[in-house]
Nucleic acid binder design. Structure first.
Length: 485
RNA sequence: GGCGCAUUCGUCUAGCGGCCAAGGACACCUCCCUCUCAAGGAGGAGAUCACGGGUUCGAAUCCCGUAUGCGCUACCA
């Protein structure tokens, strides 16, 4: 039987990296096995719906390149893939369990349940539904119904015994039935709970492997019991390690960027993100760090997924992004950078940006950027009309103003006459100047760097000047001289 | 409180009984390259494998207990 896995997010916000890591592992497994990757939207909590969340989920998947075989937008044989459009299915199955005596209507008010729970907690007793409605007589039920009290449908969990299931990552896990209560299957608003909906849908959609975060482990025995109640074969389970914030708590907004799309906006490459996320809880061997998408698909396996939760430390992601950025061809690099340059370069610079001129800067800055968002700060001096910098930088490190002026003046002469205007010729002309002035080359070049780029750290001087061109260089050297006047 | 899962350098991890007085990567430090900054290259520091008991000729690897962390304990997923 062909593998069918699903990513089943609920549209309550924009997905964070941990959530998407789960999607990634499902996708990798499906692609590795030649199976299907299905996306199913679990919008059964009307209260928590966030508008735009669905689009953010799909956009996250698209950005990483996690294409789905069935789901929203593409449809499929088991649709609809949005749970709010499958309500009658859940009702039908809940009714069946009630008719078979495997589930029952519960009329307890939310207030009573809350009070009960609080009391249990106060007494430090195990919490859980006290099963008051489990054995209601037909008369009692009729009574509640005529009073118009809304009910929920609860599953009749076995009172004793235990359930053991096999998890692909954690091996055998056992839960005593005495620790389970009668969970709600159908809410009073007519929507199913996650428990009912995911079991019904996973079965109806032919899901073979349920790969989800570890937080679902405690409810898995209930799901297994539900499969049994329906007479269905449960899928294989694989509970993935969680991803924690640097303080070891569940990843949240407090930890800075957590949503995948934020990383996109910060200039991370999807291929780097995929590589990094894959290594959070999975490894190929004892040394491989960079693995591209195809290799990932080729080598992914559940057996190599680890058990312990992983902390999301973005510093390694930053490094990896740099690796992928440097691997890009200059053309591709520019293409990816352009939208960020449009966004981040000073608005007073005319658009469209001078693409050909920017292309010349690529060899000078490609190795220096770790994210696409940094590029604007690396190339802005190539484009800006007026450089802004502290004039003291022109005679820093104990240099007297007069020497700086002499240096700039001499450079000005050479730059105006040198030909051709390329890096080699410029260097051949300017390097000897240091000795003539009795300066160390580093010192001279430092002055010229500040004058031509406005900064103390920049790409190699002569290559930079060559790209800037004679006009700009002369103008900037003159401006620098004026700063010292 | 109950139940469950987990526990190897700061972080991501390799390790499925002897090849490990524990390997790789990020970050950090030093050096090289060098006009600055990067990139690149070479080194370094960093883990008594949570702790305590077993099992075994032999344990990071198997078992038990303890501790710690995390998760679940909703008419949320």
């Amino acid at each position: 039987m062909s593998v069918r896995v699903r990513y089943a997010p609920s549209p309550t916000g924009t997905p964070h990296v941990g959530n998407i890591r789960t999607a990634l592992f499902n996708w990798l497994f499906a692609r590795n096995q030649g199976g299907q990757f299905i996306v199913r939207i679990e919008d059964t909590d009307v209260e928590r719906l966030v508008s735009g969340a669905l689009e953010a989920i799909l956009e996250s998947l698209r950005w990483l390149g996690l294409n789905w075989d069935e789901g929203p937008e593409v449809g499929g044989p088991c649709g609809p893939y949005i749970q709010s459009q499958r309500l009658s299915l859940y009702h039908e199955h809940a009714r069946r369990l009630v008719a078979e005596g495997q589930a029952y209507h519960c009329y307890c008010s939310p207030q009573r349940l809350t009070a009960m729970r609080e009391e249990q907690q106060r007494q430090k007793r195990p919490s859980g539904y006290d099963r008051r409605c489990r054995e209601l007589t037909p008369q009692q039920r009729a009574e509640y119904e005529t009073q118009g009290i809304k009910s929920v449908v609860r599953f009749k969990a076995p009172l004793d015994g235990q359930t053991t299931f096999s998890d692909l990552i954690r091996d055998e896990v056992t839960f005593a039935h005495s620790t389970l209560d009668d969970l709600v299957l159908l809410k009073s608003d007519g929507y199913p709970t996650y428990h009912l909906a995911n079991v019904v849908d996973d079965h109806l959609m032919g899901i073979t492997h349920v790969m989800r975060a570890e937080e679902w482990l405690p409810s898995t025995p209930r799901h297994v019991l539900l499969y049994d109640a329906f007479g269905w074969q449960p899928p294989q389970f694989a509970h993935l390690p969680m991803i924690l914030g640097p303080d070891r708590s569940k990843l949240s907004k407090r930890h800075g960027a957590t949503s995948l799309l934020e990383y996109r906006d910060q200039g991370y490459l999807p291929e780097a993100m995929m590589n990094f996320l894959a290594l959070l809880g999975w490894s190929l061997d004892d040394k491989t760090e960079t693995i591209d998408r195809d290799m990932l698909v080729q080598h992914f396996s559940i057996e190599r997924v680890g058990k312990p939760a992983a902390i999301f430390h973005a510093d390694k992601l930053l490094w990896m992004n740099g690796v992928y950025m440097r691997q890009l061809s200059p053309q591709e690099w520019l293409k990816r950078a352009l939208p960020f340059l449009d966004r981040d370069l000073p608005p007073e610079l005319p658009r469209p940006l001078p693409r050909d001129y920017l292309a010349m800067t690529v060899p000078l800055v490609q190795d220096r950027a770790k994210t696409l968002a940094e590029i604007a700060g690396l190339v802005d001096f190539f484009l800006v009309d007026e450089l802004t910098y502290e004039a003291t930088l022109l005679h820093d490190k104990g240099l007297d103003v007069e020497t700086s002026r002499k240096a700039l003046g001499a450079a000005l002469d050479l730059v105006s006459s040198v030909a051709p205007f390329d890096a080699e010729t410029l260097e051949a002309a300017l390097r000897p100047l240091a000795e003539q002035l009795g300066l160390k080359t580093g010192t001279l070049f430092g002055i010229l760097r500040v004058a031509t780029t406005g900064r103390t750290a920049a790409p190699p001087l002569f290559a930079t000047m060559a790209v800037l061109g004679r006009e700009r260089c002369l103008k900037r050297l003159e401006t620098a001289l004026n700063h010292l006047a």
